Amino acid sequence: MTLSSPGARAVDLRVEPVDDVLEHVERSLQMQLVRDTVVCKRRSVGGRTDRGTWVRVERRSFDRIGAQGWNGTEAAAVLHGVSMPKWYAGLAWRERDEPVMWRADEMVLVTAPPVGQAALVIEDPQLSDGWWAALNASLDALAAQRTHRLATPDTETATQELVTGTIRAVFPEVDATVDEWTPAHADLTWANVTGREFCIIDWEDWGMAPRGLDAATLWGNSLAVPALAQRVWAERRPDLESRSGRLMALFFCAKVVGPHAHPQDPRLEPAREEAARLIAELHS
């Protein structure tokens, strides 16, 4: 059950002062952030510490926190066989007078840069065969495990209703019933996988999701580079060519081509073409 949060103030941490928040984290975790390494994103802030670790801080309103809580990074520490940063400590607190929670997690510092600076890529990153093998090993290991957590892609709980609503709002002719659910990272974009040495970062949203969600997310964010999209599809073919995987690919396409489509999005036309193919395959 999700709590409502009337009056929660919309905040962009790229422009909002966060010094008080960072000082609270430093006092609580008994470390110092190296301030010139701090990176501010829309809803999270991250930086190196004086003990050679990394701290990530996130703000969420109550209506984006389900009954399971939002300790995804901490909960992911029990996963095995997955390339990910080791987790050390966590901290959560409520913002005074606002229906908002903050959370900070300290973990191993990953020095390899992400493959992309944003979710999508527009140039082929020329990844090695070893990189793809490591991706496959991690996703296969993740899918083999079990959890009571529910994934929260884009901070929305992964449910049949979410899948059906997203797909049928754009493609009303499609039966969007999911037949397989497996653990997923739920935000597997090119900004959340590292390059030279493979690693998956940002685990706050992981949990059970339709099979193929991760593969479809990485594939969809490759659509501006056809050869890369083809490579993702080939590497994750068992997932993406399952019924659930095709639905997840269509789920991604629906977000790109739907009512909020951006005319300059380089994924737009490829997503329209792929959606037509996927619908034909789902109906065959």
Rank of each mutant, 00 (worst) to 15 (best):
A89T: 08
G81W: 15
A234W: 07
A77G: 15
R14I: 00
D129W: 12
P99D: 03
H148R: 15
G81K: 10
V256L: 04
V115G: 07
M1P: 13
S44R: 02
V110L: 04
A176T: 00
P270L: 00
T177P: 11
V108P: 05
R149E: 09
A216H: 07
G46E: 05
T147I: 05
E274I: 11
H80I: 13
A158H: 14
E269T: 09
N136L: 15
T147C: 05
D154M: 12
D12E: 01
R94C: 01
C253G: 09
L91N: 06
E269R: 11
W203K: 05
R211A: 13
V38Q: 01
W54F: 02
A276F: 06
D105P: 14
G165D: 13
A227S: 14
V174D: 10
K41W: 01
I65H: 11
R96M: 05
T177C: 07
W102N: 03
R64T: 02
G69E: 01
R168Q: 15
V38S: 02
G47A: 01
S83A: 14
A77T: 00
G52Q: 03
M84V: 10
L188T: 03
L127C: 06
P226F: 02
R42S: 04
L188I: 02
T217F: 09
R237E: 08
R211K: 15
A261M: 04
G212L: 03
R272Q: 12
D63Q: 06
A184P: 15
L91I: 00
A186I: 01
T159F: 11
D12N: 02
A191L: 09
H262N: 11
L109P: 06
P259L: 00
G116I: 02
